[in-house]
Design a protein around this nucleic acid. Structure first.
Lengths: 183, 183
DNA sequence: CGTGCTGTTGATCCCGTTCAATGAGTGTGG
DNA sequence: CCACACTCATTGAACGGGATCAACAGCACG
C-alpha cells in the first residue's frame, strides 16, 4: 500500500506460472526467497504459442483455478483466524509443501527451513513481526514444533499442527484428509 | 469453518462463471443475494463443449485471472486494513459495480442497495456485525455516505470514499484512476 | 398487541499492536 | 582474536482497536 503496509498474496512453488497472458504488467512484486529457476517467455510470442498448442491454455486454466483456490483459502486464514492459528496455518502450508516436494508419503514428522524473515511471515499473515515471533515461541513451548535454529523448523506431528491451525475440528487423526486438502 | 466462523471469498457479478471444470464439487457455498439468472451446463458435456469451442477455454482463463486478481486485492483488505478502511473498501466495490452495471460514466454520485445484512458484510470483511454497523454510522456522520434507509446507500463523492478505503494516498482527484482499477 | 428479526448503541474486555530494550548471529576491520 | 557494527529475532510493558456481551430501537409479521 502507499503508506508502507503490504500484504503477501501468494506463495509460488514449482511448477507455477508467473504473469498473466493478456496483461502488460503485474501490480504485484515478485521476490525469490529461495534458489529459483525461471523459464521466460516473450509476451508476444506466447499468444501464438497458445494458439498453436491449445493444451497450454487448458494447463494455464487449471493452474489459475488452483491458485484461486489457494487465495480463497488464504482469505479464510486472514479473515477468521487468530494469531496462533494463522501462524500454525502458515507453518502447515510450508510443511505440506515440503512433504509433496520430497514425496514423503503421509509422513508425520517433517522438517524444513524458513527461507524468509519473521517480518515477511508477518506480512503473509496480516500480523506484526513481534506477534509472529511470540506465536512461534508459544508453539515451540507447547511442543507443536521444534526450533533447531530460528530458521529451522521441525514438526513432529503434522496433525497436531493442523489442529492448532483450526483446520481440523478436534477429532483425532482426521488430519490425513486435511493435509492432502492443503497440499 | 467447523466451529461456525465463516469467510466470504468472492462477490459474483454477471457475467461470471460458477464452478470449476475438472472438479467434482466446490468446497464453497454459493448464495444468491439478489435477483439471479443461472445458466446451467452439464458437467460431462461441458468438457466436450470446451473441446469444440477452444475460445471458451480462453474466456474461462480470462475470467479466472480476473477473479484471482479480485481475490488478491481482497487479501490486502483483510490483511492490512483497519475496520473503517475495510468498510469503505466494501462500499467502494459495490459502488463501482453499480457504476459499471448502469454504465454511469465516471460519475461522482452513486446510489445502491445493500442486498445483504450487516452480518454478511462482516463475514466479508473479517469483522463483527457490530463493528460494521459502527463504521457505517461513522462514515455517515462524517458525510462520506448517506443512508436513505439501513439498506440504501448514497455515495455523494466516490473519491472521498476511496480515500477512506486507503486505496488513494491523500492526493486530491487521483481517484479517477483508482475507481477504474477497482471495477 | 405480541413476536421475531435486523440494526444500533453502550460498556467492558482481550488480543494483537506499538514502543522499547535486549539477545543472538554474522561479517568487517583493527 | 576481539571489538564493533549491523541485521534479525526475542522478550517485556503499555496501549488501543475491535470483539464480546448486553440492552434497546425499528420494522414487518401474525
Amino acid at each position: 500500500m502507499k503508506d508502507g503496509r503490504n500484504q503477501m498474496v501468494g506463495l509460488l512453488m514449482p511448477p507455477s506460472f508467473l504473469g498473466q497472458p493478456g496483461q502488460e504488467s503485474s501490480p504485484y512484486d515478485v521476490v525469490a526467497v529461495d534458489y529459483t529457476v525461471l523459464c521466460c517467455f516473450c509476451r508476444n510470442q506466447f499468444g501464438d504459442l497458445m494458439k498453436e498448442f491449445p493444451h497450454l491454455t487448458d494447463r494455464l486454466l487449471e493452474m489459475s483455478l488452483r491458485e484461486l483456490d489457494a487465495a480463497r483459502q488464504w482469505l479464510l486464514v486472514l479473515g477468521c483466524k487468530l494469531a496462533r492459528e494463522k501462524t500454525a496455518s502458515f507453518l502447515a502450508v510450508l510443511a505440506s509443501r515440503e512433504a509433496v516436494a520430497k514425496a514423503l508419503p503421509r509422513t508425520r514428522r517433517i522438517a524444513f527451513d524458513l527461507t524468509i524473515s519473521r517480518e515477511a511471515i508477518a506480512a503473509c499473515l496480516g500480523l506484526t513481526m513481534e506477534t509472529v515471533s511470540r506465536q512461534i515461541t508459544a508453539l515451540k513451548n507447547d511442543g507443536i514444533i521444534q526450533l533447531k535454529s530460528a530458521r529451522r523448523i521441525v514438526v513432529p506431528d503434522v496433525n497436531r499442527l493442523l489442529r492448532e491451525a483450526g483446520d481440523v475440528p478436534a477429532a483425532p487423526d482426521e488430519g490425513d484428509r486435511a493435509i492432502s486438502a492443503i497440499a
